[in-house]
Design a protein around this nucleic acid. Structure first.
Lengths: 343, 343
DNA sequence: TAATATTTTTTACGCGCGTAAACTTTTTTG
DNA sequence: CAAAAAAGTTTACGCGCGTAAAAAATATTA
């Protein structure tokens, strides 16, 4: 590594013996220059540490290689896990991902969209807040910036949607629970923020109907993203009001289930599939912590890998095709039942 | 909102009747122009939607308003929670934070540092990997970019360190446990990745010594960042080997404790402070999920708010003072004991 | 109202790189 | 080996904004 500080591409061109326009081509796409030229450049790169100024590049190029990733709540391990893998895929594809979390606030979501506009991203992957999202702002953003939705769908918005098949989640859990014991009641928030919650309720009702079973909805109070506490309080209230009509509970999602299990423990209700237990509990998502609950949580797992890979692949197709796709595909990946101790 | 599209600051200057250099001043600092001028500009901003090109700004300004936030593992709720609040403070201070997670990999950590260099951040807040960090790369980075370390300290690196006082954590838990029952053994990874873990062990040994009690270290196997599984496996191995010498366990951190509680449940060991329980378990961090374990986890809480606020405030001071501080302060915030059901 | 201080305008240049066009060199092809 | 094709060089301009300097306009003060 030479001592000489390279200040710009012109200086690098001089020490490296390659003209600046060719260097520019190289940095945009190393494969676009001849092998011998590439070797000379990379030799020089080994000796002098020069990196083109990102701001100058992005100011002049029509398209940046920036990608925005937006999730509603990064503190939710489900989202931090999926955004971690998505981020990884973007890097592998040669893009510069930036992670944003709206933290449950639609104002913040809008700010993020504004901020994203200003960095002229090649494309954006967004898991919208859902019910709380500012639909018109989001729609306008999607018309301006190539956008792919993931995890939670909003009809017609964005160029594609990739998520999990809620019906597949619920059918597997309901069928398993019904086959191995009493059919479950469905435990969920009265006013869920996420559209997946509604799909799961509908799926539950459909499937119970198909199986000729009587559905029970346990709709609990609470707002916001503190699902564990909502689930815990909901469980305690359920027990207190003696409103439990089934000995099996299927939670809309794992975070509610984690709270419910805490509530069960507090109330002295035993949970598990073993005989003699008061309650069986199952859920959906395969939250990273669901295997460490007591008892470990039977749940239906997202296909994290497929959702991540397909989201990024779709965005790449979208970018390469110039920002719009022939039609808006909605891709849903099926769930995988994870049998553990809670049911 | 007028139909006319404003392409650059010059065009905006025309429709707005203010010269471009004055607009430039305004966008850099709205307070730097006369009130009447500001009003005219903001009037025009209401009619035409124009935002200065970030890339052109950052290319030309000596200092950007970008701030990098780097954590070792964003999927760890402790880090996602603390980076959420830090991010918030940065935004309030008028900066543009960008979040990075090295996901436990020192290669990735170095890539992030490279990537950060290229966006010429005004400053960087980093919670380094610790033992796994590439010290020399990190050191070089710190000399080039104004950097504040938080959560995990590396001697002399960065312009300041803000974190939690591990001694305060351990002294509170040990004293509480010893006062209310048998003194605890200390449950930790044999080769912890994080320097805080070492400080906590040392503190444990010191405090036990001070109290005239015999210390017990339960050093468990395992590598990486899957602490829950490591804790669970460690607990099961401990029970199997009948290596438990105390009826009270103090875990190095909550994620290990969550795993340990899962292990206890599996092994049929009852946990709690109530009489008749097999084991008491306490821990450190006040992990967001620690109140939903079964039983809920007695732990020592980080002062998230103070650590976040002071980290950002220190970084702002550092930036304003031109990138270096008179001396390297190490600020440690004390813990707060959270008594719950597990001990 | 005159003198002074402050702010804005005008003019001009620079930042680092993308990129187009015409030309030259190197490589490939028959 | 000559002709054609491909790649590199030279030259020149543009992107959108920061910023310096001198001149002009406006505000403040006495």
């Amino acid at each position: 590594m030479s001592a000489r500080k390279i200040r710009n591409m012109q200086e690098f061109a001089e020490v490296c013996g390659i003209s600046r326009p060719t260097l520019s081509k190289y940095f945009n796409d190393p494969e676009s220059v001849r092998g011998t030229t590439r070797a000379r450049i990379e030799d020089a790169l080994g000796q002098y540490d020069f990196r083109p100024n990102v701001y100058a590049i992005n100011q002049n190029r029509k398209l940046t290689r920036n990608v925005g990733i937006v999730v509603p709540f990064l503190s939710d391990p489900f989202f931090s896990e999926i955004s971690r893998t998505i981020e990884q895929r973007c890097i592998e594809a040669g893009y510069r991902p930036t992670l944003y979390s709206s933290n449950g606030s639609s104002n913040r979501e809008n700010e993020i969209l504004d901020s994203l506009r200003s960095i002229k991203p090649a494309g954006v992957l967004i898991a919208p807040l859902g019910r709380a999202s500012d639909k018109s702002a989001l729609e306008k953003f999607c018309t301006d910036v190539p956008t792919v939705l993931f995890d939670s769908n909003i009809d017609g918005m964005g160029e594609a949607f990739i998520g999990s098949d809620n019906h597949s989640f619920v059918s597997q859990t309901v069928e398993y629970l019904s086959r191995t014991g009493e059919p479950p009641g469905f435990f969920e928030m009265k006013h869920p923020a996420n559209p997946n919650a509604n799909k799961r309720r509908t799926a539950y009702l459909d499937i119970m109907h198909q199986l000729g079973l009587e559905p029970h909805l346990y709709k609990i109070e609470g707002n916001g993203w503190g699902f564990e506490e909502i689930g815990r309080a909901g469980a305690l209230s359920l027990f207190e009001r003696k409103a439990l009509k089934t000995n099996t509970i299927l939670c809309s999602n794992d975070r509610l289930a984690i709270g419910l299990l805490a509530g069960c423990y507090e109330a002295g209700m035993t949970v598990g599939r073993a005989p003699g237990m008061d309650l069986r509990v199952a859920s959906h998502d395969d939250h990273p912590f669901s295997r460490f609950t007591c008892p470990s949580l039977t749940t239906a797992a997202h296909d994290y890998t497929s959702v991540s890979n397909d989201s990024v692949a779709t965005l790449m197709r979208l970018i390469e095709s110039g920002g719009s796709l022939a039609r808006r595909d909605e891709t849903l990946f099926p769930a995988r039942l994870i049998m553990r101790e809670s049911a």
